[in-house]
Write a protein that binds this DNA or RNA. Sequence first.
DNA 1: CCTTAGTTGGACTCCAGAGTCCATCATGCC
DNA 2: GGCATGATGGACTCTGGAGTCCAACTAAGG
Lengths: 229, 229
Amino acid sequence: MSLLLGEPRRSGSLAAVVDPPVRSVGTRLTARGAATRERIVLAAAELMAAKGVAATTLDDVRVASGTSKSQLYHHFAAKEELVHEVITHQAGVVLERQNQLLRGVNSFAGLRRWRDAVLQRNVLRSGAYGCDIGTLAAELSDTDEAAREALAGHFATWEQLLADAFRRMRDNGTLRPDTDPATLSVAVMAAVQGGYLLAQTAHNAEPMRVALDMALAHVKTFEASTTGL
Amino acid sequence: MSLLLGEPRRSGSLAAVVDPPVRSVGTRLTARGAATRERIVLAAAELMAAKGVAATTLDDVRVASGTSKSQLYHHFAAKEELVHEVITHQAGVVLERQNQLLRGVNSFAGLRRWRDAVLQRNVLRSGAYGCDIGTLAAELSDTDEAAREALAGHFATWEQLLADAFRRMRDNGTLRPDTDPATLSVAVMAAVQGGYLLAQTAHNAEPMRVALDMALAHVKTFEASTTGL
DNA sequence: CCTTAGTTGGACTCCAGAGTCCATCATGCC
DNA sequence: GGCATGATGGACTCTGGAGTCCAACTAAGG
């Protein structure tokens, strides 16, 4: 499948190549430049995840990344471009983590381990900050069409990881043959994102626990009957 | 129960009384002033729902409401206060609508009607804009503590409306006696909010349909067995 | 009417934050 | 080792948007 966008993206150079709009045409990054670019994106990602995109100023990013104004604009044509890069970065991190957690899942026990891992992270921060992709989606969907499309794609990739797990569970007889992995994955994603939002607003991970439990119970209703039938 | 905060709040004067922070101390609104205030809040609510809080400038509000700068600051000490008023307003609208939809629900048929109503609204706008409360929560939870708390309260009120319906269904024998309405309502809320977010990002109401179907199916798993047993 | 308090228009200030510029330094390459 | 190109520092400009101010207007009440 072509959904393996969840690569670690440590290189940075790849991101520069992927990025067509402005700059990076006839501009090769040196190792030093790439490192700076990376630092900027990392700092921006962290700030934007914590305070939101609009509330994060380029001066915040400059200070947090220990760079100067000229470096910001040397690597990104405008704040919007940096935001897009942050989206790519966060998606890479989140999807890679989800990929690790989900790729081997082919049973209810595996699914429960995934649930536990997601929940645990949320508990650690008492629900605060929400989903790194979800908060970006909520803030940008109505104002930045390119961002919206990218984020929709990342959601789709994430859903695909879930759907693959469900497909494996269907194919190995854990789930009924008539189970639709795609639909099921959308339902579970909705529960996850809703859990994130409620937990973030309540500053309490409990809603996430409830949401994930519903999601798993829902999957369970597609369990193949073990009794003969 | 003390959760009937979902009153129509058409008066505006009530909102002014509820609002203790700044101004409105020794300042009685005339009908004219109240009308202006109302227009400002309405315009701001609409703009912020469509573009987000940060992307909405006071000049936007001024133009949309046909008022002047002095009127804005006559009625609100700062943009933040206006935002809080918008939260109260949107919560009033949403909760009143949900109250209308949910107050009589005491059966699966009623629950399906609620589902259909929520979904239909989402389909009409192709998922865009999301939930008026949810988008505010996502944008403000990490930057405005007062807003976060208010929104958490509004979510709780909404959940209480759902929980009341589930409690009625439990008490009339539709749901099993061991059903916990509160937990169930959190799960359903998570599905609703997740559905809103995915639909908003995809610009497509389908995820909302899937999420609501999961939620209803989940409630259904608490159905009291009709066969003797 | 005449006073007092609420309401309004709109010009004005002020500043944060986006974006520009250029001189200087570092580095890769021949 | 020297040229071309990338990387950097940081001062600078410019503008949008928050918030101020005051004179003028309206309305309620005595």
